[in-house]
Every structure is written in C-alpha cells, then in structure tokens.
C-alpha cells in the first residue's frame, strides 16, 4: 500500500507539472530532434536573426517587456545599436523568467501539503528554490549547440550567446555546461516533476521558521522519486544518488547567476530589473 501511495503522488505531481509548464521535456526533445509535424524552430545565430526573431515573435502577439514608443520595435530602423538589441533581449528574458516564477509557484502549490505550511516558509522555499527550478527546467530545452526559447518556437545558438558583450556572454555558458551533463541522466517528465518538488521542499533554506513539516514532506517525495527512478530506469545504477548530487551544482549555479545580475545592475545604466526578480534576488546569497 505504501508504494501505491508513492505512485499516486508521482502521478499527481506529473499531472500538475504538465498542467503548469507549457513546454515539457518530451515536446522539447521532439522539436530538437525534428520529430514534430510542425515546422522547425526559427534559428537565432547573429544580431540580424535576433531582430528577425523578435519580429517573428511579435507577429505572434508576445507582449514586449518595455513598450515605450520611442524605443520602437527595431524593425527597419537600421541605426539601432547592438547594445540596445542585447538589452532588449535581456528584458525579454526577464519577462519570461517572471512568468516562469508564476508557473513554478502554481506547481509548488500543487505539492500535497505545501499550502498548509507557514506562509512565510512558503515564501522562503520559493525565494530560494525558484531559480534552481528554472535552471533545471532549462536543461531539456538545451543541447550542446543551443537552446530553445519562446516556448520552443525559437532555437538560439550557444555560439551567439557566447558572442554577446560582457557580462551577457557569461550568463548562459555555465547553464549549458550543467545541462549537457544533466541531460545525460536521461530523466523524463515524471522524474523531473518529482525532482522539482524535492528541490522546492528543501528544509535547509535560510530563515525557515518551521523546518520539520517541510522535511517530512520532502522525505515522502524523495521516496516517491527513488521508487520512480528504480521503476523507470531499472538499468541505471545509482541514478537516485546521481540526481540528488545535482542539487549541489545547482546552488553554485544560482549563486554565480545572482552575482552576475548584481554586476549587471552596476554596469548597465539602462537596466531595469523586473520587480518580482528583484524581490527574489534581494538578500538571496
């Protein structure tokens, strides 16, 4: 009966994962391997294709993060500098990240027992967990050559991201290095759903008021993840341990990411950080 409960929990978390995250690993891998019936994603590999990619997305009514009329949309203007295009791209990434935070919050609320926790602890778990979750969610969208963005409609090359000016060029490379290794574990969407819940329910986040109920919840999800990995990957030795080890790498990735954002805030005059992301990153590490 106990393992039946753990299977029910796995199924529940998988269902909410599919409900709240629009681009699953299964869909992303199908796009990356050209196995969808739809057309291939638009490829961004230089500044010109970046501007064209923006046009492609605007045609599909994606809201712009900054709609000041004097900024224009950059079409056919010619005089717009690469700096401006890069900054606008960064703003779009922030807008998407804020939307990602909303998705992760809804997923967290669907974890049995989460909304029963002290509200301040729910905030702390999200504040510390959400960037880790967003980085894990990026992995299925990436391969060694680039990443899907805009819900899989666009593929942006790793070389292009490396060619941006400092420190933008340093933002994604560590995530590619992590993702290429993480993808070798070959987790599927159900494995991912359980792993994300384990990350969110970390009882060692700074400032938690009531650790015990969080640890109890995490323990149950850990059992469900262990069982899931044994059943789904019977030939993959020590997979459970390997997956858990990734949590250490994740914390370092987040620390480095937050430091880069803080550096950006100092060096880029025109940079405005999304209020939700500001809230999360303030006094984080």
């Amino acid at each position: 009966p106990e393992s039946a409960d753990l299977r029910t929990l796995a199924k529940h978390l998988y269902e909410s994962y599919v409900k709240y995250f629009p681009l699953t690993k299964a869909k992303a891998r199908a796009i990356l391997s050209g196995k969808t019936g739809d057309s291939a994603p638009f490829v961004i590999h230089d500044m010109k294709s970046l501007t064209e990619g923006e046009q492609f997305i605007n045609c599909k009514q994606m809201p712009l993060p900054d709609q000041r009329p004097e900024m224009g949309l950059g079409f056919g203007m010619g005089q717009e500098s690469a700096d401006e295009v890069e900054l606008r791209f960064f703003h779009r990434c922030q807008f998407r990240s804020a939307e990602g935070v909303r998705e992760v919050t809804e997923f967290a609320k669907s974890i049995p027992g989460f909304v029963g926790l002290d509200l301040n602890d729910q905030v702390t778990l999200l504040k510390y967990g959400v960037i880790e979750v967003l980085i894990i969610m990026m992995a299925p969208l990436m391969n060694k050559d680039g990443t899907l963005i805009s819900y899989g409609q666009i593929f942006m090359t790793r070389e292009f991201l490396k060619s941006l000016r400092k420190p933008f060029c340093e933002m994604m490379e560590p995530k590619f290095e992590f993702s290429v290794k993480f993808n070798m574990l070959e987790l599927d969407d159900c494995d991912m759903a359980l792993f994300l819940a384990v990350i969110i329910l970390s009882g060692d986040r700074p400032g938690l008021l009531n650790v015990k109920p969080i640890e109890d919840l995490q323990e149950t999800v850990l059992h469900a993840l262990e069982l899931q990995l044994k059943m789904n990957h019977p030939d993959s030795l020590q997979l459970f341990a390997k997956v858990l080890q990734k949590m250490t790498d994740l914390r370092q990735l987040v620390t480095d990411h937050v430091h880069l954002i803080q550096l950006l805030k100092k060096t880029e005059i025109d940079l405005c950080l999304h209020p939700l992301l500001q809230e999360i990153m303030k006094d984080l590490y």
């Binding site: 809201p63 939307e99 935070v101 909303r102 809804e106 301040n120 905030v123 999200l126 999304h274 809230e279």
Partner: peptide
Amino acid sequence: KEKHKILHRLLQNSTSPVDL
C-alpha cells in the same frame, strides 16, 4: 512580508501573466 509582496500575492492567488 513587505519585502516579498509579489511572492505573497502569487502564493495566495493565481495571477495572470498580464498582472506580472
């Protein structure tokens, strides 16, 4: 609580992308 206004709001209600 004031420091994490938006997170509180997201936790207590569903917020549409437009509100963000």
